[in-house]
């Protein structure tokens, strides 16, 4: 059970390892708060669709399964869209068309097809939470890098009674930030370098695993 939860965060991280759900990830990662909002939306939709699809897995006919999944996912996305529009209008305006576009986020359909329609509700819930958190954390990482170095700030929720306007300004960086990271090309750069970093880590892990396999052979000789 726990393995289903952690695999989404590290080993099968949707954004950096499998590279799914790129469009929303890169487009909304200009501010940390947008990343949190998008992550929350994706976790909710993923959880809802995984539970529903795993409950209905014995009723949905094999041939029309994809349209069925899409309807379930689109319903949950509509809920997110309406709730955000009603209670968080600023966030909803910032995220714009990327909220309805959660429907075509390949992570959600991918999990429905690859996991929820074969597994029990409990395991699907764990899988959804793990994948959702993995996606949100990677999104936060990209957004943090882009906002801290591109604008010198970290935007969070404003808290009125603490006189906190929701923006942490980083001394030194906010006066002369590297603006390019805030632009659309910055998102692609950050994503490229992170993917390279993860490739490098994976390669290193493989090499060390290969070495530990070779060693006992040498000892036997």
């Amino acid at each position: 059970m726990i393995k289903e939860l952690t695999k989404g965060i590290f080993k099968e991280n949707p954004l950096f390892i499998i590279v799914l759900g790129l469009c929303p990830a890169l487009a909304v990662s200009t501010e940390v708060i947008n990343a949190i909002g998008m992550g929350a939306g994706v976790i909710f939709v993923l959880l809802g669709s995984n539970v529903f699809i795993s409950l209905l897995r014995n009723f949905i006919p094999e041939k029309v399964r994809i349209p069925c999944y899409v309807i379930v996912i689109a319903s949950f996305v509509t809920i997110v869209d309406m709730v955000m529009g009603a209670w968080l209008p600023v966030l909803s305006r910032n995220l714009g068309i990327y909220i309805p576009l959660i429907v075509v986020n390949c992570i959600i359909l991918g999990r429905a097809e690859a996991f929820a329609n074969k597994n029990t509700v409990g395991r699907s819930v764990m899988d959804a939470i793990g994948m959702g958190i993995g996606f949100t954390l990677s999104l936060l990482l990209i957004a943090a890098v882009r906002e801290i170095f591109g604008n010198g700030t970290i935007t969070l929720f404003p808290i009125p009674f603490l006189q906190f306007d929701g923006i942490i300004r980083i001394p030194g960086l906010s006066s002369m930030p590297a603006r390019v990271l805030g632009l659309s090309s910055g998102a692609l750069f950050v994503m490229g370098y992170f993917k390279a970093l993860f490739n490098w880590l994976e390669q290193k892990q493989k090499e060390s695993a290969a070495n530990s396999l070779v060693e006992p052979v040498i000892q036997e000789q």
Partner: peptide, 14 residues
């Protein structure tokens, strides 16, 4: 080596 494939594509797109 770590940049081969996808990472270099992202950076080029940037």
């Amino acid at each position: 080596k770590p940049f081969r494939g996808m990472p270099i594509a992202f950076i080029t797109a940037g």
